[in-house]
Amino acid sequence: MNPVLHVSNLSIAFDIKGRSTTVVDEVGLYINAGETLALVGESGCGKSVTALALMGLIESPGRVNGGSVKLQDQELINLPESALQDIRGKSIGMIFQEPMVALNPLFTVGDQIGEVLLRHTSLSRDAVQRKCLELLDQVGIPDPARRINQYPHEMSGGMKQRVMIAMAIACEPMLLIADEPTTALDVTVQAQILGLIDQLQKDMNIAVLLITHNLGIVAQHADRVTVMYAGRIAESASVHDLFADPHHPYTQGLLKSIPRNGETGARLYSIDGAVPSPDQFPAGCRFSNRCPLVLEQCRESVPTMTQRQTSHYAACWQD
């Protein structure tokens, strides 16, 4: 079976003041139907830009420099804008980081969910209204008949995120992109929202791209993980393999930095240094200036992705 989403060698560059800076470099990933892939990395490592590129929403001064994005064998790179508009919202749904600002403050939530349906389906206005109520019910909003006519400011953050999810799944997409869907919510609501996404995924057999920097969320909600560092993929594996046996020193560092129960008094581990800015990436492996296991080779040539176990890949010169 072909994967729902297959990205290969995707590169994205930003042209600023006549200089071109590559922020996403040769990224590859795939997601099968009904599977959750977590894309993990620090702020600024290119996670969100990658997500936007999947929908063809990279704006000047950024541009996609090469590579391919295939949604069920349909190539999305270089597709004309009108064709992309038919795919956005219909085949690919997206949930944003901050529900407080991702809904238009001047329209009722019913209008906003209905707008997607009117755009992508041929339902009548009455049918759209019924479908909206159904969707609100599906995402767990109590009393949908009253909520449908409310404005975003009358709802709590978690409720707004549920509305965002309702909009994203309104047209039963193949792929759902969740860009840090719970960063702006408090912890109990986080669990509910992620549980809701899991539930909907099971019901509708959607492929989910879960972008996050919270490894706890990854462990609970993802099937596979792709770790990004400074615009490149560092390691890609199933959740179990990655947590049990990380191969890339960056992943090892990340896992060591998680605070654990029962380890009181000891200083929390952290990776030395900071992520360099995109115009100062080191040659060779981009992690080489912070890596505890750095070799001479690392500073000179870019490590290639090599297979370590069945479906476990890492880009590192170390074995």
């Binding site: 508009q85 919202g89 997206m94 944003f96 991702a102 403050p105 755009r119 909009m167």
Partner: peptide
Amino acid sequence: EQDFVEAARALGLP
């Protein structure tokens, strides 16, 4: 630069 504009575009609106 507001998210809801980005969101509107992500819904495939012209």
